[in-house]
């Protein structure tokens, strides 16, 4: 078994092999790899005796279950109306300049992926962004850049 197959096998041992184990297993893979590779989805399908298309269908339904490679840190800026009215475009522009990549892209050193997200539920404190699982509300362009720089420092 490959490393990925082993990992998926362990997740299946932990969460079981019924259909409702699919989500926690997919989340487990994403927590480790940041995305679901073709190999991982096949391994999940095999463990749960599902069709690979079913696994892919479920994965593509959820924004947070990526099926394309992502950087070590995934930044998601809220794009919904409250954050939009609080200048989320400015935040995105600043991040794009800081990271030298566009929304939807991953930096060449694979450390960051910049994405937008639908409402994160922080409308009262917009604009807001998520970096991995951490929320950063009431952003300014300055604050957003500092946060990213902190992540860069930590990863060096």
């Amino acid at each position: 078994m490959t490393n990925t197959e082993n990992f998926v096998h362990e997740l299946a041992e932990k969460h079981g092999r019924t259909r409702n184990a699919l989500m926690p297993i997919l989340q487990g893979v994403v927590a480790r790899d940041k995305y679901l590779s073709e190999e991982a989805m096949i391994a999940v399908a095999r463990e749960l005796d599902l069709s690979a298309a079913d696994v892919y269908g479920t994965a593509t339904f959820y924004t947070f279950l990526d099926t394309v490679p992502r950087g070590k840190n995934v930044i998601r800026v809220c794009k919904t109306i409250s954050c939009h009215m609080h200048n989320k475009d400015e935040i995105i522009k600043a991040l794009e300049e800081q990271l030298r990549c566009k929304v939807g892209e991953t930096t060449s050193d694979k450390k960051f992926t910049l994405l937008t997200a639908n409402c994160l539920g922080w409308c009262h404190k917009g604009p807001v962004m998520l970096v991995n699982d951490d929320v950063y509300p009431e952003l300014t362009t300055q604050k957003a850049i500092e946060i990213v720089q902190e992540y860069i420092r930590k990863s060096n």
Partner: peptide, 18 residues
């Protein structure tokens, strides 16, 4: 189940694995 519903909303299609 060679065919499945993939993606969602306006991007939803009936497609295959990957």
């Amino acid at each position: 189940s060679a065919l499945a519903v993939v993606h969602k909303g306006s991007h939803q299609t009936i497609s295959t694995f990957m």
